[in-house]
């Protein structure tokens, strides 16, 4: 229960217990090993089912849009975790077991997040997800709602970037992948989602879902810190003038700008596009996202040559597309594709 209390006495062997990565790992052991099944058992589905059933269809739809991108996002990350483990063990980082130890904890946690959402969605929200059960690795696709918005594209991009980074990628590739995942997906898209769920919980208090989100966001906080530490290492080497690391900050900024387009689209998809029945408020969501991005990119990483107006422009471009987008039609299209895949898988 209180494992790290014994650290000073047990001393350090080959593991550097002073490393931030070790601390993150240790905190994962202490805080991240919650049991999703036990959580579900302890809190139970009943109260949430009751609230869910009392919701109007558009309110259910708003939750469904948020949860779709969470479950597909967690699923995508669980798949990519093995690539992150490979990437952090490459010689581009000062080789150390501590990063791999943390990455292994991250892999477990992402799998557990997928497990929690899988349990929740199947037991509470299933009426909104007739097309859900097909694993993307067994010939399936993302949930149609995820595919219809920027998040779906972002997760596809994440897979490509993580693969490039893990399989012979250089520091610039690694910086792109880490920015996309730790800053974009976890740092803004997911945290924007928590912001949204906090607002939605006021109107529709789904207790078990809230508890799950609290554990998940606690785990994600460590993942984000881990990602920022990795990026700081790469930036440090670039600033020292190590030739192979030149271009790292530029890649971080370019990726962040690309990702804010996907994120803005998703933000609109879960709020303005459906009339925001549970009162998230798109304006507040945008402001929160901007702050989260600013904290990470400017305060923590302090990247050089960033042009904040590029960031706003990318969000503006995404918003322009979003306004003209008929998401319902896109969801229907993906529904159709999903149905075909399901039949094919069943055959």
């Amino acid at each position: 229960m209180d494992a790290s209390d014994s650290t000073p006495e047990s001393g350090a062997g080959r593991i550097d217990t002073d490393s931030t990565y070790y601390e993150l790992y240790q905190k994962s052991v202490e805080l991240g090993t919650w049991d999703a099944e036990k959580l579900v058992e302890k809190v139970g589905f009943e109260e949430d089912r009751e609230v869910w059933e009392s919701l109007a269809d558009d309110e259910k739809e708003q939750w469904a849009r948020v949860i779709s991108y969470f479950i597909d996002g967690e699923h995508a990350v669980a798949q990519d975790a093995r690539r992150i483990m490979t990437t952090v063990s490459t010689p581009w980082f000062d080789r150390s077991i501590e990063k791999e130890m943390f990455a292994s904890a991250l892999a477990l946690e992402e799998a557990k997040h997928t497990q929690f959402f899988d349990l929740y969605l199947s037991n509470v929200m299933i009426d909104k997800f007739p097309q859900y059960e097909l694993d993307t690795r067994r010939g399936g696709v993302q949930i149609p709602r995820t595919d219809a918005c920027g998040a779906g594209k972002m997760f596809d991009r994440q897979g490509t970037l993580q693969a490039q980074a893990a399989h012979g990628g250089d520091p610039v590739d690694i910086a792109r992948a880490a920015t996309n995942y730790h800053i974009g997906v976890e740092g803004i898209l997911a945290r924007g989602g928590y912001f949204a769920k906090n607002r939605m919980m006021q109107e529709a208090p789904l207790t078990l879902l809230n508890k799950g989100f609290q554990f998940i966001s606690t785990d994600e906080g460590r993942h984000i810190t881990f990602g920022l530490e990795l990026l700081e290492e790469l930036i440090e080497k670039e600033r020292q003038g190590v030739p192979e690391y030149q271009g790292v900050q530029n890649a971080i900024w370019e990726q962040a700008v690309e990702d804010i387009g996907y994120i803005t689209d998703t933000g609109y998809f879960i709020t303005g596009d459906i009339g925001d029945p549970l009162g998230v408020d798109f304006d507040d969501l945008v402001n929160r996202g901007a702050r989260l991005a600013g904290d990470m990119l400017f305060d923590t990483l302090d990247i050089d040559n960033a042009q904040p107006r590029d960031y706003m422009q990318a969000a503006a471009d995404a918003m322009e597309e979003a306004r003209d987008n008929d998401y319902g039609e896109v969801i229907e299209k993906y529904d159709h594709i999903y149905e075909q895949k399901k039949q094919a898988a069943g055959d």
């Binding site: 303005g272 402001n287 702050r291 600013g294 305060d299 904040p308 969000a315």
Partner: peptide, 21 residues
């Protein structure tokens, strides 16, 4: 101004869809 908003040194309250448009 964008950096100011992103860093929290400035706050913008209003219709962000219109601002982005």
């Amino acid at each position: 101004v964008v950096e100011g908003i992103m860093s929290g040194e400035l706050e913008l309250d209003g219709d962000m869809q219109k601002i982005l448009q």
